[in-house]
Design a binder for these strands. Structure first.
Lengths: 125, 125
DNA sequence: TGTAGTAGACTACGGATGTAATCGTTTCTG
DNA sequence: CAGAAACGATTACATCCGTAGTCTACTACA
């Protein structure tokens, strides 16, 4: 398996769009990013192109347009990005990261319960 | 408060050394990184210099040497890096990140218990 | 006191990134 | 059918980053 290509911050925004819904034309991706990112359509095209170059996206031609789809699984990229983050900030350990998030990020009571359930499952396996 | 300067991946390794113990001379930082990073001492010097430029480190002079210390708090940089990570990968939401870490990272039973305790405290406040 | 080491400052350089503009071709519209 | 609009490909360019090398001044030893 080709390990996940390294995807830059801006490129992630484009990938998210296509992981949510695909295949899409460049124009549809541009549209999906309006309001979220203040990018020229040119910029989005460039990112699409680079992602194809990195083999993170693939496309089929449809007339003179391309229909883009992810070529890597989101879960795989999440794992990769998370590991890098843990390495950089927490020396690779998940525990301090979890503690940081739990104590610093806002969680709804329902979410807290859900996490507790997850932890319980985790322990009994 | 000056918001946390943006610290690159390599620079984080240098900051970690100085957050753990400071002040240190350049040579001591180099020594602390041996074995962990396969960097020329030059490289470490460059990183120290850039970090001073970014005002992430400060120094006092000691003879012809510098004694480097952090100029930003670790916790502040962790918060900044964590937020960026959440934005990039999880659309800014902590919950999916937590779920990902809990279900994908290896946790010891004791750690699971500790997280549960943390969550309990969280809920009752 | 001259000389070799050591320290920090400055310079280097290729690749990644953010952010487009331009070019050549195809298609749509009047 | 001719010009305009749209598409992807190629080019641009400043900055950051990883990873050093060189230059200059001071220090410590012979």
């Amino acid at each position: 398996m080709a390990s996940a290509p390294s995807i830059s911050v801006s490129e992630w925004a484009v990938m998210q769009v296509l992981w949510d819904r695909s295949p899409l034309t460049a124009a549809e991706v541009v549209e999906a990013l309006e309001g979220e990112k203040d990018w020229s359509p040119r910029t989005v095209k460039t990112l699409l192109n680079r992602l194809v170059g990195k083999r993170a996206l693939k496309f089929q031609t449809q007339g003179n347009k391309y229909l883009y789809s992810p070529a890597v699984r989101r879960e795989q990229c999440i794992r990769h990005a998370s590991r890098s983050f843990l390495e950089q900030v927490f020396g690779g350990a998940a525990m301090p990261a979890l503690i940081h998030l739990v104590t610093n990020e806002r969680l709804k009571p329902g979410e807290i319960d859900e996490l507790r359930r997850l932890l319980d499952e985790r322990r009994s396996s």
